[in-house]
Every structure is written in C-alpha cells, then in structure tokens.
Design a protein around this nucleic acid. Structure first.
Lengths: 218, 218
DNA sequence: TATTAAAGTATAACACGTTATAAATAAATA
DNA sequence: TATTTATTTATAACGTGTTATACTTTAATA
C-alpha cells in the first residue's frame, strides 16, 4: 500500500543529504572561526559572510547560534569516546583499563583546552545551554565505556547496586576533576594523574596487600 | 606629617558608606527580581526602573550586569560557609565531621536550586563569568573548612602531601556530584547521600574492620 | 514555455547590554 | 549668593541574536 505520491509541482524540498552538506559546510567554517576568535566574538552576521551566505540562511539550517555550537560539541564528544573505546579494547586487565580510560578522559580535556573551552567554557553560553546537550540520550550513551570499564574492574564480588552507585560517582569525579582544574586554573593543583589515580583507588575494592593499616594487622 | 588636605570646593564624592548602601539597595532589588523571573529575563533597563533609578546609574555602582550577579553570589557563598563552619564546630569526631560537612555542602546546592541556578546556571552567563569569581582569594578561603575537616579525619598517620592531594580531590568530587546531579537532572541518579558517603569512604584510610576482603583474611 | 513551490536574499525592526555625551541637579566652598 | 565639582538624568547610538516580511532566484511539473 505504498502511497503513489506524485511530486508536487514546485521546486522540491532539500534532500536530507543537501541539508547535511550545508550544515557540515557551515559547521566547518564555524569551528575554525570559533577556535580562532571565540564563540562570542563571532556574530551570526560575520559567520554568514565568511560562509558566503546570508544571516537568514543560517537560520534555515540551524535554530540558533547555540545550535551551531552544539553540532560542534557532538563532533568533539564523538571523537573522544571513540578514542576511549580504543583504549579500553586494547587493555585486557580490568583495573589497568579503568585507570587508563579515566585518565584519558580527564587528560583529553586538559590537553585540548580549545575543545574544552568551546564545549564547557565558551563565553556567551550558559550552563543551561550545555544542559540540553548533555542530557541527550546520544550523549549519555557515549559514557557507557566508562561505566562498563569500572564494572569490570570491580569484579563479580561487588553487588550491582554498588556498581551502579560507583559508576555514577566515577562520572561525577572525573567531570569534577576536569572542571575544577580548568576553571580554577590559577590554583596550584596537584598532578591530575595523581588525582585520577587516587580517586579510582578509592572506588576499587580495598586490597589488603597494599593497605598499610591492614598490612601490619594481617 | 599628616597632609592637611582641605576639602575641594565642589560637591564631595560619595562616601564608602553611601556607595555600600546604594549597592546594597540595588542588590536587594536584583536578588528578588532574578529569583522571580531569572537573571536573563531582567534587563538593566527594567532593574533600573524597579529600583527607581536610571540605567546609567546602575553602571555607576556596578561595572556590568554580571557584576551585580557576582555580588549576590558572594552573599550566598558567605551564608553557606558560615553554616558549614557551625556544623564543623559542633561535631567533635573527625570522621563524622568530614561526612557532615561534605554532605551539607552538596545538600545545600541540591536543596536550594534557586541559589544554585543563580550561581552556576543563570541563563545568559558563561562559565568564564563564574571563573573570575571562583578564583578570587576570598572565595577560595571559604573552602578552608572543607580542607581542615578532611585533614583531621585523615589523622596524623597520613603524610601532608597525601593530605593536600586528597583535599583537592574532595573539592573536585563534591563540586562534581553537585554539578552533575543538578545539570543532568533527568538522569535517575542514586541518592546523593550515598554518593557523598561512598566518595568520602574512598578518601579515608582503609579500615580493616569493615573491609570485607580483609575481614576474612584477618 | 508557463506555472508553482521552495530556497535564498535584502531589509527593517525589536530588545538587549553597553558606551558616550550633554544637560540638569545636588552639595559642598568662597 | 556665586562658584565649583560630583551625581544623576536624558537621550542617542552601536552591535548583538533573532524575527518578520517582501522580493528574487531556482528547480521542478503541467
């Protein structure tokens, strides 16, 4: 029962592909401009001119200026989590894996201040703007690699509710470390590797062999 | 050699007290309006009208709109940390104290979404706007109560460098928990008390008596 | 080719934060 | 009172994100 929809008479609507290409073209230009001069410094009028378009055309392809930035965030997060999955795949030992993945997550932001600034600290955006993006299902799905790595490191002796609790805590901690070290950059923080390692050690089951207090007692 | 400065002829400059009073008056009006309708929704023109002033006069007492918000933040942070100090003072046991203070810090933000939104999530402010405030010495000093409580809970058996590391980690963790639970509010997070307790337990020295793995071995 | 519908352009407008400038007002001294 | 200086007001302007509207161009069908 496929409806025999004969195309209407006028000019056809843009195909999905055409829309995607135009959005990609605008995003590419925006990425370069935002990184060079900052999100706030680039006006819609300026971006339109640089892309060879009219300001109005931008609003045909994106709902708003922040919508353009969000499309860039998706690219950055995608890149990061593909990287994390590669690291997880190549590290067989669960404990080494959770350390490696967590450290990479934090290090990524510290090493890519351009990206971090554009995602979390673009001048002129509010944290409410970030919120809509972070809450998207696609964004949350990216974080499964962190959750699964921790679950494996905790092993079978840990109850699922505890695993869930600690997975959530892991995310809070890693985001907290990255966020604090970058936003309060003038404070002489300890090495971020030490912070991540100490945090992960606190999450993992206590190991008598390297616990000084228990070491003597045993 | 006190200079005999005779006052100049014209109208004298506003005294510190006059300036403080005018700023307080503006802040009070802004606090109510920002809480009722949101920071972004209140324009400088509107705030001026509500305060019985000219927009230009606002700029005589504050550098910018965000500067007004910052003065409100200072009041909120001051209130919170005075509360934390009271809690710390009334709890003699160091371990109970760090738990109580940490939980209160996180709970404060979760219980006062109005304040949290106004401090960390006002629509129309950027995270760079927060940065200048958080980096101020006066702001950092407020956090000493957290650092000192943790230091006491860690006891004398822990080396100072480790204490410092864990103090910094504590701040990252608590901010991370509060921030994630509030900004990703649609996710079904575990109880925040469990998150804080688990996080603190991970920071404190491992206690053989309640460590299951070691319990059997001992 | 003529028609039709969508895409894209051009232009003006709105409220915003902010700045500049000139006029009016207030509070002191001479 | 006259003068002097600071405060405050009044007003216009700039660039911003965004919306609305009318117009032109493009790509299809009849």
């Amino acid at each position: 029962m496929a409806e025999q929809k004969r195309p209407p008479r006028g000019r056809p609507q843009r195909t999905e592909k055409q829309i995607a290409e135009m959005r990609a073209k605008i995003s590419a230009r925006a990425l370069r401009l935002f990184q060079e001069e900052g999100y706030e410094a680039i006006s819609m009028r300026r971006l339109a001119k640089e892309a060879g378009l009219t300001p109005m055309t931008l609003y045909k392809y994106f709902d708003s200026k922040i919508d353009i930035l969000r499309s860039l965030w998706a690219g950055i997060f995608g890149e990061l989590f593909i990287d994390l999955e590669k690291i997880a795949a190549r590290e067989p030992d669960p404990q080494a894996r959770i350390h490696a993945v967590s450290l990479r997550y934090v290090t990524y932001w510290l090493d890519s201040p351009d990206h971090y600034f554009m995602v979390f600290m673009s001048k002129g955006i509010s944290q409410l703007d970030v919120r809509g993006f972070v809450e998207a299902d696609a964004t949350l799905a990216w974080f499964y690699v962190l959750r699964d790595s921790l679950s494996a490191a905790l092993g079978d002796g840990v109850e699922p509710p505890v695993k869930r609790l600690k997975s959530e805590l892991l995310l809070c901690i890693l985001n907290g470390i990255a966020h604090n070290l970058i936003t309060i950059s003038s404070y002489p923080w300890s090495d971020h590797e030490d912070l991540v390692r100490t945090a992960i050690d606190g999450l993992l089951p206590k190991n008598p062999s390297d616990a000084p207090i228990c070491g003597d007692a045993c």
